[in-house]
């Protein structure tokens, strides 16, 4: 597990002077990309998103590694192209060094518009790590709902009103969709735990083949929180089991962190402006439904992990 000291000794991938919002936690993972492994050339691609825009306002770029962005819905495909050209040139003897490729998208560019190109890239087996930083809405365009937006959250396209409590229905579980691609590595990580995250990045990068990491990354304006609160809210997202930390290696689930005590999801929700309208008795059914969904999801993962243990016990 790469410690902070070890990571600090390596050159980062991402420079200051970018124009992400003050307190946006996304650069926490971008600066790690070159710090978790040794011996690889790292190349990154980005879907259109906050990170993409704010890191590359011409003539400036925060990227200290080669980086390419082409469009919103296609980083899976454009990085398939980059990775394939690497293999082609390696085969022809024009490149000898080992390379690793990383594709980055927000939840809009990954859960929604980019799902097809992500699915294609993973199914074809490119040696590519896809990192989705999930902040639960289209933040770059001004907080519109995505299929990752949690129930009840207000966004600019699911506003709170006389006839609406915000986003209706449950969010999509992209991590499970990625597990269904039968790839070697899928993980959920959180921006508040850089050591766990670095370990997951390392495993994903070192794996020979496609890997997917879904990363909880709170958004200052989208969640309507103070600029120093992103890490704390990511932590609470994990403590309340809204965002379980787990990994699926070759189809086998493993929970990486079990909260020490039961923390109701409201402890996480009501620190955020996007949920505060629900903090009234008349919306208790929405909050209850939210809590139930969190529990159902957590229990589902627990069952998957338990069945792995059960099976390995039988084998032994």
């Amino acid at each position: 597990m790469p410690s902070l000291q070890e990571m600090a000794k390596k050159e980062g991938a991402f420079a200051g002077g970018h124009r992400m919002c003050a307190g946006c936690p996304v650069p926490i993972f971008t600066k790690m990309l070159t710090r978790v492994t040794d011996g690889y050339e790292i190349v990154a691609g980005n879907a259109t998103c906050c990170l993409e825009v704010a890191s590359s306002i011409f003539p400036y770029s925060a990227w200290k590694i080669p980086w390419i962005h082409t469009a919103f819905e296609n980083v899976g495909a454009s990085m398939s192209g980059v990775e394939t050209m690497y293999r082609a040139l390696k085969k022809r003897g024009k490149i000898t060094k080992p390379y690793k490729f990383i594709a980055i998208g927000g939840d809009g560019g990954t859960y929604d518009i980019g799902l097809q190109s992500l699915s294609g890239a993973m199914e074809r087996g490119h040696d590519l790590v896809y990192i989705c930083y999930d902040n639960g809405a289209y933040m770059n365009t001004g907080v519109q709902r995505s299929s990752a937006t949690p129930m009840g959250a207000t966004t600019t396209t699911t506003p709170m009103g006389e006839q609406s409590y915000g986003r209706q229905g449950n969010r999509k579980d992209l991590s499970r969709i990625m597990v269904a691609h039968n790839i070697g590595y899928v993980a959920q990580a959180s921006i508040h735990d850089p050591v766990d995250l670095s370990e997951k990045l390392k495993k994903a990068i070192e794996l020979d083949g496609p890997a997917f990491i879904n990363l909880l990354s709170p958004c200052i304006p989208g969640w309507k929180i103070a600029p120093d609160m992103a890490v704390e809210l990511a932590r609470l997202g994990v403590e309340t089991k809204y965002w379980p930390l787990y990994e699926v290696i070759d189809g086998e689930y493993k929970i990486n962190y079990t909260p020490k005590k039961e923390v109701p999801v409201t402890e996480w929700m009501f620190l955020q402006g996007r949920f505060k309208h629900l903090n009234k008795p008349e919306y208790s059914d929405v909050v209850d439904a939210f809590q139930k969904d969190v529990e159902r999801n957590w229990n589902w993962i627990v069952r998957q992990a338990a069945s792995v243990e059960l099976l390995s016990a039988e084998v032994n």
Binding site: S80, T84, A88, K91
Partner: peptide
């Protein structure tokens, strides 16, 4: 030929992969 083919899942991805591959530094 010793070309690497990418049998993509749509034409949008075909052209996206063309751009990525060409930018990586080869003939596409």
């Amino acid at each position: 030929v010793d070309t690497e083919m990418i049998t993509v899942e749509s034409e949008h991805s075909a052209m996206s992969a063309c751009i990525g591959a060409a930018a990586a530094g080869g003939r596409v």
